[in-house]
Design a protein around this nucleic acid. Structure first.
Lengths: 130, 130
DNA sequence: ATCCATTACGAAGTTCGTAACTATT
DNA sequence: AATAGTTACGAACTTCGTAATGGAT
């Protein structure tokens, strides 16, 4: 998965047309169209509804956009993340679901007290998944 | 940023050598080495410490690995995310830091009660950042 | 002696732009 | 008439494998 393709998709979705996205990115409309086709090829479903003149994102594409956005920003900030010294990154906590009731909240308070400023990922699941 | 390159980096880091990663991925050692070089080129710093026989990740690489892992899994699950109906994806909550003390924990319990199974992102910060 | 990493090089595949074409407003 | 999207095609770039080289255990 090439994040530059996703970046083009985001521009198309945001500006409503392949041509506008192309202008933003300093590419030709043909190139952007080919990028979208490559993505559709890799993902296995259609991303744009070619309604005459304007390109509208499909339902599946709309569901996909937030994730694509996250992927692109993560990829674009990868280098600086590695250059930072000290504690950085995410705290990832796998939690067996029932523990959410009582045990986790106070633990969260302590984590935040000692490592404030770090984004926190809570991932509920079963022992097997985690 | 091509996530397949990151995938190779993860394998190298996990197995301790380029050759082992190549075997896992069904590639030649040369190909994996070139992938790492491409990554180092794109990121602008060294990823592997070529100590004689074994390749050790550099400090910067170690800091980068968790993010790379997240990127790869996100990319690999992009298609299924779009295909799923109903609620899916992450819950992202921006929290002004002081609220962590009292207000957030009970809210978390309710979020989990109503939308269990969804990964949760808690992002502490100031109003400006959020 | 065996195994790992790297380099050079050529083949296959990808990505881009140009240009031509069709369709929409 | 102007602008959007698509297709075909060729040039430039990437990515991979093979083969050869140099080091490490």
């Amino acid at each position: 998965m090439e994040t530059r393709l996703l970046e083009s998709l985001l521009h198309v979705a945001q500006h409503g047309s392949i041509a506008a996205a192309a202008r933003r990115q300093g590419l030709t409309p043909a190139a952007v169209g080919q990028r979208i086709q490559a993505l559709e090829n890799e993902l296995g479903f259609q991303l744009l509804e070619r309604v005459g003149h304007t390109s509208r994102p499909t339902e599946a594409c709309i569901r996909l956009l937030p994730h694509a956005r996250e992927l692109v920003t993560l990829a674009n900030h990868l280098a600086e993340k590695a250059d930072m010294d000290g504690m950085s990154g995410f705290i990832r906590v796998g939690v067996i679901s029932t523990l959410f009731q009582d045990l986790i909240p106070p633990v969260l308070r302590r984590i935040h007290a000692e490592l404030s400023g770090l984004p926190l990922h809570l991932i509920p699941g079963t022992s097997m998944d985690l």
